[in-house]
């Protein structure tokens, strides 16, 4: 564990807490893409299949359980909570996300570290995570106005990936024979997807104005 990875995990955790806070405090999921949240639930479930086979550390296991439970809780709220579900922007959240799932799985069948069920699903989860934010970004762009908590949620989610890139650079420099081709490449793609959002987030932050994305 180094400071970059810890910072990445903490910003990731913070992003999820912000989203839960937004949903509970405002009883609204307006501006939140249920499709992105469902993709994250799939990502965590398929990546953490090793919960049952490999023990890394108490921290590792704890975080995995938190990520799976929180993503399922968010999806549950958006689908079934009697009040929250009514604020779901169904007509704006129309990204065809099954395409992302299919493409990620196909890529995992081609590019993986080892051809086994667990390794193919692990690679699948990495590829899917890289693009899982797309429905959320499309929804934000369509709705134009972004409320503060949703904006901060996306910002911290992007920050998490940026910290992980620093973590890989650090590990590459300090650990012998350290390579993370699959995670590293996907991580760069994932972070790049946030570039546009980051740009407008910083502009609004600098001007102390509400975040607006151009149509």
């Amino acid at each position: 564990m180094n400071v970059f990875r810890l910072a990445g995990d903490m910003t990731h955790l913070l992003s999820i807490l912000l989203l839960l806070l937004k949903i509970y405090a405002t009883k609204s999921c307006s501006g939140v893409s249920r499709k992105t949240q469902e993709l994250y639930a799939i990502v965590f479930i398929f990546r953490y299949l090793d919960l049952f086979t490999d023990f890394i550390s108490v921290y590792n296991t704890f975080m995995k359980v938190v990520f799976i439970a929180s993503s399922l809780a968010i999806v549950w709220c958006m689908r079934f909570h009697p009040v929250v579900r009514r604020s779901y922007d169904r007509e704006l959240d129309t990204f065809r996300y099954f395409f992302l799932v299919g493409a990620s799985f196909a890529l995992a069948l081609i590019w993986h570290e080892k051809f086994s069920v667990q390794e193919v699903f692990w690679a699948f989860s990495i590829y899917l995570e890289a693009v899982a934010i797309l429905p959320q970004l499309v929804l934000l762009q369509r709705s134009g106005n972004v409320d503060n908590l949703t904006g901060q949620y996306v910002f911290f989610l992007g920050a998490y990936r940026a910290f992980y890139i620093l973590n890989w650079i650090y590990r590459y420099l300090t650990e012998p024979r350290f390579t993370r081709w699959i995670a590293g490449t996907s991580g760069v793609v994932q972070t790049a997807l946030y570039a546009d959002f980051f740009y407008y987030y910083f502009i609004s932050w600098k001007n102390n104005s509400k975040l607006k994305l151009p149509a």
């Binding site: 990546r47 090793d50 890394i56 975080m63 570290e113 080892k114 390794e119 992980y164 973590n167």
Partner: peptide, 10 residues
């Protein structure tokens, strides 16, 4: 053959 490393990251 080379075994994949344990995935120690989240």
């Amino acid at each position: 053959t080379e075994q994949p490393e344990v995935h120690d990251e989240l």
